[in-house]
């Protein structure tokens, strides 16, 4: 009885979470351009999508931006974590405190503050300013993913490698890095997702003529969104669904706890809290 009630509750929450997604997917097949009524089934939006240069441009920008910012953030973040292993505890906790700022700060304040920085530096806003902003909010995800793993690491293997005559760099790449790989990858994926989904910070640091999918959607909200965007989102969603399904059977993406990576601010903050800083 209790279990049945529990399952009903779970189902209700699931419906709440997925109702908008189902709606968008259905609309991507709606032949009426108005979203208010159903005009019959069509694949036109899917076919038209690939010749819509504006949307495809925004899509490519979004993916490239997410990839590049996540990559740079992963390199900087992993290097920072490695450097912090050689620091005094106090210095380390100061850096972790700074790392927490973008995580806990409101996006609008982060966005506005970066906008003011770029304005004061008289940099013209565009891809570069958005890239720098995304790297900035991505690094904490990498650090908060990699730091706890460093704490669990067995240091004697690295020292053993040195004793056996390995160069420090060689020892790092052959002994330490493989152990960190899962955490690094999860930090990268988190960054990628956060960058992909960001609107607010991009909104304040973008220049004219620059669009990601998010900013494009925002500018279309008032006049009505082109259903080709629903089609694109449906494709992206299904691709990720397939990937997740696929990845779940790959042992190398497992986190220490054996669960898949959770990509929201909270999870990372919680992880960091657990590890301590």
């Amino acid at each position: 009885m209790k279990t049945a009630l529990g399952r009903i509750y779970l189902t209700l929450v699931l419906i709440f979470l997925y109702a908008p997604i189902a709606t968008l997917m259905i609309l991507s097949f709606n032949s009426s351009k108005s979203r208010a009524h159903w005009g019959g089934f069509t694949l036109d939006w899917y076919l038209g999508l690939f010749s819509n240069e504006e949307i495809m441009d925004a899509f490519r920008t979004t993916i490239f931006l997410a990839f590049l910012s996540a990559l740079i953030a992963t390199v900087l973040g992993t290097a920072a974590c490695t450097g912090m292993q050689f620091m005094k505890r106090r210095d380390r906790s100061i850096i972790m405190g700074i790392t927490n700022i973008p995580m806990l700060n409101a996006d609008i304040v982060t966005g506005v503050s970066l906008m003011l920085l770029f304005l004061a530096a008289r940099v013209s806003m565009g891809f570069t300013t958005v890239l720098f902003s995304h790297i900035t909010f991505n690094i904490p995800y990498v650090i908060l993913s990699v730091m706890p793993r460093y704490r669990e690491l067995n240091r004697s293997t690295y020292e053993a490698a040195l004793d056996l005559g390995a160069e420090p760099l060689y020892a790092f790449f052959t002994v330490v890095l493989p152990d960190l790989m899962g955490a690094i990858l999860s930090g990268f994926l988190m960054s990628f997702t956060m960058s992909l989904d960001d609107f607010i910070i991009t909104h304040f640091t973008q220049g004219p003529g620059f669009d990601t999918l998010s900013t494009k959607i925002y500018s279309e909200v008032k006049k009505g969104i082109n259903p080709e965007i629903y089609a694109l989102s449906t494709i992206m969603f299904l691709v990720v669904l397939l990937l997740l399904f696929f990845v779940n059977y790959k042992p190398w993406v497992k986190k220490p706890a054996g669960k898949i990576i959770v990509t929201t601010k909270t999870q990372v903050v919680v992880t960091s809290g657990k590890g301590g800083s």
């Binding site: 979470l17 992909l196 989904d197 609107f199 998010s214 969603f237 898949i260 990576i261």
Partner: peptide, 9 residues
């Protein structure tokens, strides 16, 4: 996680 892959806007 899954819903996050559809744009939040």
């Amino acid at each position: 996680i899954l819903p996050m892959w559809m744009n939040s806007l």
